[in-house]
Design a binder for these strands. Structure first.
Length: 194
DNA sequence: GGCACGATTGCT
DNA sequence: GCAATCGTGCCT
């Protein structure tokens, strides 16, 4: 008996959803479903951990140094993907927020994996499990390739946690801001608190 | 042209 | 605790 891998149906999150305050978008993304379709075979997971990057003032953001070839997607329109290669071997997926010219984005750090999808507890693992690479950099978040839907799931308010972002200690005071948003559970890239 | 390093991961 | 692995950004 084959596992039903049909992606959850729901409201497609378009540019109007992402063209809002980045911290608000980050919080609202928790519990939504990220879908990646390759040749008609959907892979999906529920978003349980994200981080907001609000350049160019945010020293932890890639856009802090201004527009460069790599970060050009961050300066593009909302509702598009910003995908980059880190440590020469892992890809990281971001959703661009705010209008073009305002280089803010949200890093997808962890998913609760859907049927047949591997472990997604970490930004590199999310991209590996869903088959996301730099060919999607700058692509619009639209079906079928890559998109986000609100299927009606609503996390209980008490389940949402905020902590400082991971791996940005170099950013000084910006590293202390609680811009990592989590849905408490067993699928996070790191445990909450310490 | 050269070089240091990273929004990570997995193994010792 | 640390190696893997390479594109990017900055310097010469």
């Amino acid at each position: 008996m084959a596992t039903d891998r049909t992606a959850p149906a729901g409201r497609l999150l378009g540019p109007e959803f992402f063209d809002r305050d980045t911290l608000r978008v980050a919080a609202d993304l928790l519990g939504t479903v990220l879908v990646r379709d390759v040749d008609g075979l959907p892979r999906w997971g529920r978003i349980v951990e994200v981080e907001a990057y609000c350049g160019p003032t945010d020293r932890a953001a890639h856009s802090w140094r201004g527009l460069t070839p790599r970060t050009s997607a961050m300066f593009g329109p909302p509702g598009h993907a910003y995908v980059y290669l880190i440590y020469g071997m892992h890809h990281c997926l971001n959703f661009v927020t705010r209008p073009a010219g305002c280089p803010e984005a949200i890093l997808v750090r962890a998913l609760e994996p859907g049927p047949g999808v591997g472990r997604c507890a970490g930004p590199g693992l999310v991209c590996r499990a869903l088959g996301v690479d730099r060919s999607l950099n700058g692509a619009p978040l639209e079906p079928p390739a890559l998109y986000v839907v609100d299927d009606g799931f609503r996390p209980s308010p008490g389940a949402i946690a905020r902590t400082p972002r991971i791996g940005v200690e170099y950013a000084g005071e910006w590293a202390e801001l609680p811009w990592r948003f989590c849905l408490a559970g067993p699928h996070l890239s790191r445990r909450l608190r310490s």
